[in-house]
Design a binder for these strands. Structure first.
Lengths: 257, 257
DNA sequence: ACCTGAACACCGTTCAAGT
DNA sequence: ACCTGAACACCGTTCAAGT
């Protein structure tokens, strides 16, 4: 974990980059969009740790410092990347009719975000600070809120419901992705890992006893072959959340409709 | 983001460190526990980026390389830290009676985990891979599953429900913490940030129109003064989740009880 | 047996210099 | 106007050497 001397990032400059990126092509062919595209391709293929300014510049065939006038710095580049992929989340998708079942609309949102995280795994590595004030993120937010509009929720409840749904998705995605990475790096399969850990763990745990945990872990292992099943947890959790939302909407409906 | 040459980490060695750490005190006074404690103190105060092997060694007054025989490497140290703080989550807490309301028990779990993340903000920065096979994490898991036991859920449903609850908590915690960090670093207050972003954003967005997003953002701004309210979303989401769980348990109760 | 220090192959960003 | 290269102050981990 290097110090990396990262600057906070200038919001006004960022707005310009997000909404009115320079289209003018200089002698090297660099533009904010070209750089952002190269950075996304790199992060998709090799992960966030491989995403260094030096590497992106190398991939584009220019010196490291050539990028700075176009992207301001690393944190701005990350925001440009997030906004660019956010614009694609619902691009290749036909949304369910607004007149139909709200459960279908919510499942559509959850699935699109799940697919999004799987297509761009680095999205789960970037800590969301203040919202990215760009066209991609704004359009995504508009699409998602619209699916929750007209159910009888207050504006704030709409935002909170959406946050809860997306939180469930990104949490499961984060765990799934980091499990996947560890599997790749460790060169141990899950079975091998358990074989390596199991016996010493059994001996080490000899004194202590965790009756419920032991029972649940055994059931999980039988059913999934794993000690943890983030995607299953996400689908189950989403179902419960929608059941709760149904109760809330239903109760209001009796009063207000 | 440096390459950092991080090794995957040896599971068998880790088990030993977690369950039977060397108590023998060498001439420097180093033990796994002493090192882990120093690392936690550093991460609590200065964050995960400040947690370097070099810094921990410096704080302990030894050379960098003196730590390696005791902790194996950085990734093992992180797991030792996670297990140590996991053991503290319910330590200073009186759990609600198992005979009482299950909602109370779930709220207690959620609150304890929220407090835990706030006390040790670096816990949201560490990607959970395979579960940490230590006494702290195992004890925490046992406590939490016990609170969900006997409700009529299957073992797998118990695990998935718990994952959903903890996911909601850690997601809200992660957003709250990274917002807090950005506020500290940027030296711009939220109001100043909006004043800096607002006008240029208004001009930039002139063409596009996001009617629902605009309305919801305005309501959020009025109510909370913020563009995002992770903690509110977490409490609202947890309520919905528990409503859904209640429906599920109730429906089964009618059949099975 | 335990600890140290140099070396390796990296970071993001600055600044002055080149074309 | 646009791009380059050296420099700064860092990383985790290796290995051989010291006490």
């Amino acid at each position: 974990m290097a110090k990396r001397a990262e600057r906070p990032g200038d919001p006004a400059k960022l707005i310009g980059l997000l909404w009115r990126p320079t289209e003018a092509v200089s002698r090297s062919g660099l533009t904010p969009k070209v750089i952002t595209r190269a950075a996304i391709a790199l992060a998709d293929q090799e992960g966030i740790d491989a995403l260094t300014i030096r590497r992106v510049a190398g991939d584009l065939g220019v010196s490291t410092m050539a990028l700075y006038p176009y992207i301001a710095g690393r944190s701005e580049l990350l925001e440009l990347m997030l906004d660019a992929v956010a614009a694609e989340v619902y691009a290749h998708t036909t949304p369910p009719a607004q007149a139909g079942q709200w459960r279908t609309r919510i499942e559509h949102i959850a699935q699109a975000n799940w697919d999004h995280h799987m297509a761009h795994p680095w999205t789960v590595d970037i800590a969301a600070g203040r919202p990215v004030p760009g066209p991609g993120v704004s359009g995504k937010y508009e699409t998602e809120l619209s699916a929750l509009d007209g159910l009888g929720l207050s504006d704030i409840e709409m935002d909170q419901t959406l946050t809860a749904i997306l939180g469930l998705v990104s949490n499961a995605a984060r765990e799934t992705i980091s499990l996947r990475r560890i599997r790749q790096e460790s060169s141990l399969t899950d079975t091998q890992w358990w074989e390596s850990v199991g016996p010493s763990l059994g001996k080490a745990m000899a004194g202590a006893s965790y009756p419920v945990a032991r029972r649940v872990a055994a059931s999980l292992g039988e059913a999934t072959g794993l000690a943890t099943d983030p995607e299953g947890a996400f689908r189950f959790g989403l179902g419960m959340l929608m059941d709760g939302l149904g109760t809330l909407i239903g109760a209001r409906g009796r009063h207000t409709l």
